[in-house]
């Protein structure tokens, strides 16, 4: 290896190491902080402390953990499944069926990506209020299930789906919904896995809309609870960090379990 190649390699490793450290530092800091008392965290202590057990006990005494986890899990899983079903059907339809109106409708769908959520909050809230859905989990899910981004993602991925597979299935006697269910879904499983990871994380971490819609403690999700702990008059940051760790674990779990399919899906591979 000559000097310039070695220097390039060192630079590459230095860059990647820095990027990796910057990405992972918040997690390390979160983990370390969860072992310290609030006063130590505020004073900037970076070493591992001995308050982990106390913080966990305090968190469990202040928060109805099973309830908020159930709320978050129910919301995230249901909203994710509904989003994937609706958006993949739309993506499949936009790619497979030709009509003069198709591209215009698709352009309208993509246009909704340009509208910031802040602009939609008040009209959405009014719609939900009029429909009597305030403080219900349905109100959280409804605006998310037809996701323009996921429709776009499925349509782009569907371009890699061989149209001859659809023809072969027709010759084999399958109706369109059967082609979708028995051929498209299994063939596109990497795309579904990637979409599941993206949508699950988005739904699990959803904060602003649930904050507006959910008004009782019985319906609140983990993100709202952690946020409320952090915004108390005297926040106990050790307890907040325990909440943050618990809120992060499911998304980490989903990501690591589906990492391979996620990468394949993002690369657009159809196996």
């Amino acid at each position: 290896m000559n000097v310039s190649r070695r220097a390039t390699t060192v630079l590459q490793y230095a860059f990647l190491g820095t990027a990796a450290f910057l990405s992972i530092f918040p997690f390390i800091w979160m983990a370390i902080s969860s072992t310290n008392k609030s006063i130590d965290i505020i004073s900037g202590r970076t070493g591992i402390g001995d308050a982990f057990g106390t913080n966990v006990a305090n968190f469990f005494s202040q928060v109805d953990v099973p309830l908020v986890f159930w709320n978050s899990t129910k919301l995230a899983v249901l909203a994710t499944l509904l989003t994937i079903v609706v958006s993949s059907l739309a993506g499949y339809g936009f790619e497979m069926f030709r009509s003069k109106a198709r591209d215009r409708i698709y352009a309208l769908v993509l246009l909704t990506l340009m509208v910031p959520f802040a602009a939609l909050m008040i009209p959405l809230f009014m719609m939900m209020a009029r429909s009597g859905l305030i403080n219900t989990h349905i109100a959280i899910m409804l605006p998310t299930i037809a996701s323009a981004f996921i429709i776009f993602y499925f349509r782009q991925s569907t371009k890699a789906f061989q149209t001859e597979l659809r023809d072969a299935a027709k010759v084999d006697g399958l109706k369109e919904w059967q082609i979708f269910l028995y051929i498209y879904v299994p063939v596109m499983r990497s795309t579904y896995a990637a979409a599941f990871v993206i949508v699950f994380m988005t739904n699990w971490n959803n904060y602003l809309w649930p904050l507006i819609v959910l008004q009782s403690n019985e319906t609140k999700t983990i993100t709202l609870v952690v946020s409320s702990l952090a915004s108390a008059y005297y926040p106990d940051y050790g307890v907040v960090m325990i909440g943050t760790i618990l809120a992060t674990l499911p998304t980490l779990l989903v990501f690591f379990v589906m990492q391979r399919q996620f990468v394949q899906g993002m690369l657009g591979s159809v196996k």
Binding site: D167, A168, A169, G173, V187, R189, V270
Partner: peptide, 18 residues
């Protein structure tokens, strides 16, 4: 198509990959 009494072989084979 399935009731025409035909079977078709495609250029890309169109085998179900799963």
């Amino acid at each position: 198509p399935s009731k025409r009494g035909i079977a078709m072989v495609f250029q890309s084979y169109a085998l179900y990959p799963h």
